[in-house]
């Protein structure tokens, strides 16, 4: 029994080490000089910790990290709102539908489930160019929202099918329209599944790199956290006093957010998995 315990303890220790190690380096080295990072990457710096590298990264003329955060948060919110507005009523119509075309629509909407976004970049550029939307925020948001449709439809339809039809009937007798029925009666019940969808979609938009890189493009002058960090450090990747502070600035707020919201985030994912 003690052998098992020791094994368990060892496994946990290794796990903690490999997960915390990179975080430790990221945090401590963001406050160290290049010389100290190169000579004592894991240790205490001879010249002490300093805030000046973080300050330099915050005020860098190449990459405005605060603006990138604002932009990315706005994108995440916009995609989630669009997603709920667009997919919510459609999922309801499909879930309640009894006709053959409902099923057909469902299949079309699920078509993108297994198509990786990156392989669509080239033809999507072609389409958005024809629409005059390439390199614009609306074009980018439309495509990001489209990429969220299949998963969300999947989750929503499955959920609405578990909601008794009697609720709709009651609302209809009270004279509610179909939209009214959905938004006032069904949608409030969908909170858990909507949370799951929002977790998945938010993480997708937040960590996306290819689409802001190619659909939004450099010409828009708009950088998300990922494309901004890439632009800021890919050419300076040997200057660790630029790399570590930028990585810290890019990750710290989202990690803090995650730690506070972890129950909801992990819970949301888990709810989705059990549904699945």
């Amino acid at each position: 029994m003690t052998g098992r315990r020791a094994g368990r303890l060892l496994a946990v220790l290794v796990l903690v080490l490999i997960m915390v190690g990179p975080l430790y380096l990221m945090v401590t080295n963001a406050f160290k000089s290049q010389h100290d990072i190169l000579t004592e990457p894991f240790g205490w710096p001879t010249s002490g910790f300093s805030l000046k590298y973080l300050h330099a990264a915050l005020t860098s003329p190449d990459f405005n990290v605060v603006r990138a955060y604002g932009v990315t948060v706005l994108f995440v919110v916009a995609v989630n709102v669009l997603n709920l507005l667009i997919v919510g009523p459609a999922s309801y119509a499909i879930a309640r539908g009894t006709r053959r075309y409902h099923r057909a629509v469902m299949l079309v909407l699920l078509a993108g489930l297994f198509i990786p976004g990156q392989t669509l970049v080239i033809p999507v550029i072609y389409v958005l160019k024809a629409l005059g939307l390439i390199g614009t925020i609306p074009g980018f948001l439309l495509f990001e929202t489209t990429l969220t449709v299949p998963t969300t439809v999947f989750l929503f339809v499955a959920f609405v099918q578990t909601v008794p039809r009697e609720l709709d009937e009651a609302a209809r007798i009270d004279g509610a329209s179909r939209y009214g029925t959905f938004w006032r009666v069904i949608f409030p019940l969908m909170r858990p599944v909507a949370a799951t969808a929002m977790v998945l979609n938010s993480a997708g938009v937040w960590t996306d790199f290819v689409n802001p890189q190619f659909i939004l493009g450099p010409q828009s002058g708009v950088y998300t956290v990922t494309t901004g960090v890439y632009a800021a450090i890919s050419r300076l990747s040997t200057n660790y006093t630029v790399v570590y502070p930028n990585i810290l600035l890019a990750t710290a707020p989202v990690i803090v957010f995650y730690v506070f919201m972890q129950r909801r985030i992990i819970g949301g994912l888990t709810a989705g998995a059990i549904k699945g």
Partner: peptide, 9 residues
């Protein structure tokens, strides 16, 4: 109701 996501997809 179904048209918007259908158009996007």
């Amino acid at each position: 109701m179904m048209a918007p996501p259908l158009i996007l997809v």
